[in-house]
Write a protein that binds this DNA or RNA. Structure first.
Lengths: 224, 224, 224, 224
DNA sequence: TATGAATGAGTTTTCATTCAT
DNA sequence: GATGAATGAAAACTCATTCAT
């Protein structure tokens, strides 16, 4: 009973938006291909159902068996980490590019928008940032530290340029990204996403009254 | 054998899982007590471990068996809904009080702060708002609608008073609350919580430039 | 779909050689009963198939689900240990009785025969003695030590009485038991079992020539 | 591409998994080499870990892939049988040599010692003799019968010479070998091994009292 | 022919739910 | 009404075997 296809799985062509010009056969060359498909399928599955999605479902989406899953990633946690690390690496690279090509304020606020836009429909990163489920903190520490450093670099430069409140730290920024992503639950069309970004960035901007009030510990942000 | 059953009195409806509509009996006293203990225990358990906490753990905290759990709440999802609805009812009441006692802006921003503060260390509501796990949206629609209405009332009045951006809707506000709660992941001391509230409220405030830019769809919130 | 009986499992009465005068219902009182049935079923299953027998098979024999299995014994290893410990306790008790009621030689040789006879068709103990599969040595150390002590007591007394070779130790004796049990593979009727016991006990008996030859390291046991 | 296939030559039979019957080719040289390496590796692996060692581990030791494994031995059981048969053939040859060069008693007792010594640290044969795991009895019947015959020949001659108890059969002897090997579990140094052999051989020796008692079915081997 | 990726039935364990007591 | 033992359908992971390259 060889090479049996998962029932209910559409032919790969339907969901296959990658180069697609590969021969019908699999194997050897497809070792790496399957790994990539698993990463993609896992990314989508985590995005849709969160970390609790079953290995079987991920394998089904990737069009492979659970055995193949285990060959490539010894545990589900391992795959999750791989997905997140993959994601984070991309973001770090993006941060570096923005820092190189823009003034501090533009770099920071653009990166914030990128974080939200790239992570839309991506609960995986959302879950990762909010640490839901696994503790990726430990194992993913390297890439995570890189990400923290990249974000901190952008933030500090923007603060030094006077564009962002002095009292803000990177955890605040990450939390605001999660907030923007949370808007998705009620339907996150492009207008809503842009509005959320606008609100968050506006809130982050240096604003003498806000910061001063905070320093005094009063509630002037509430009273008109 | 106290308070024996009156003959001829109809059995409580089999499908009626609202003990409140049953006649006053001794058994009901235990029943209600256990139901309340379960709600409390579930609230705490969900708050600590999220929706994935086991029924056994909840029952253990409440000091009852899992069988008693199932008697009161046919499914775990049902209990979760009950916990969230219970919470939402409290919040709706709070919103009404604030609306009655304060000017529109103060009422709205204070309610925002209340949402964040009351929900801190309360993953149950956090998960509920972000719908992690179950889809409470559908079943909890009644109380949820009440909550939506209450929040909308405060929001609209604040907008009419010119204190909040005109383009903001309730989903935006809820997402910002989630964002503030997300800060907790990296350690949410009181200073951080107040700072997050300050940032969010500041972002929500009417700000001619921000709203104008949004209306034009440009990215002026990014450029300095 | 409650209380479903395992297909292929005969009604309990067929295999039920215990008191049998219990009501048809199960539960509560049957908690302990099921534990006992699991122990027995496991004993038989391990005896037939060795430690590699599946949990499912054991549960099927006991007429319970795998879930019930796990309720009583967190892991398969735990059950195996329980089976072996249970067995060892019985044997230790038997050793004590024999030591109290007989002269040293009779006590020792009778205990040897008991070990073989009680362990016939019992690969569980066989496997345990030969440590196949799990390492019960560690966890079962207490009962195992008791067993070792009991056996050593009998052996030393028999040696002091001049009935057993001075150079024999308990490991030798255990190995000979395993040897007698190994005879079973080719069909161990009562005559064969008695013959094996006879051979082994005869080999263990004090015999100046055998021991002397051993002491000199020569091979006189081979030459005629 | 060396030694290309002669056209018209029939394909090797699909069901023929004995490469030895194939025509002599260069490929076959590799094939036989790999087969030999697999046998050796399997022997060592079985000896170390018993029958439960994984195919992957055996292939790794042999320096081949699992695919190559399966090419040479359709199933793991098949390899195990091959290993055991291989071993048995050697032993049969040894038995023949001993029978030719020695008096009956020396031949028999020496062969017994050889069995134990050769099988020490060799769980493969041990497991085979005790049938742990697979049932090699059936499939390995040919070589096994040869082994049985060889052992029987030595035994009968020794019995006719009056050196061994008349009531002993080959199964008894094999069981005693297993017993000697079982001593290994508790540390089988050379002294212990020689002692076990001494005990077993002493037990096997003709001894009027032992055999008489056995014939009468009493328990004189127990009483002093 | 050798490779090693893919398979999928198998394993043990968990847990929400049911039900006899 | 409360109990908690029993259930069985999941889950993640393993591994002997198959097959495209």
């Amino acid at each position: 009973m060889p090479q049996e296809r998962h029932p209910g799985e559409p032919e790969p062509s339907a969901t296959d938006d990658r180069p697609a010009s590969r021969p019908v056969r699999r194997q050897r060359a497809d070792g790496r291909r399957n790994q990539a498909r698993l990463l993609e399928a896992a990314f989508a599955a985590f995005a849709e159902h969160g970390v609790s999605v079953s290995v079987r479902e991920i394998a089904r989406r990737a069009g492979v068996s659970t055995g193949t899953f285990s060959r490539h990633f010894p545990t589900k946690e391992e795959l999750f980490k791989a997905v997140v690390l993959n994601r984070i690496e991309q973001l770090v690279q993006r941060a570096d590019e923005l820092a190189a090509d823009n003034d501090p304020a533009t770099a920071f606020f653009t990166f914030f928008a990128v974080l939200v836009e790239e992570s839309t429909a991506d609960h995986a990163v959302g879950d990762a940032l909010s640490s839901a489920g696994f503790d990726i903190q430990a194992a993913a520490s390297t890439a995570n530290r890189d990400f923290g450093n990249a974000l901190r670099g952008l933030l500090v430069r923007a603060q030094q340029a006077g564009a962002v409140r002095q009292d803000v730290d990177t955890a605040d920024v990450k939390a605001l990204v999660v907030g923007c992503l949370a808007r998705e639950r009620d339907g996150l069309d492009d207008a809503a996403r842009q509005r959320m970004i606008s609100i968050a960035c506006h809130g982050l901007r240096a604003c003498s009254r806000a910061e001063t009030s905070e320093a005094r510990g009063d509630s002037s942000h509430i009273t008109p």
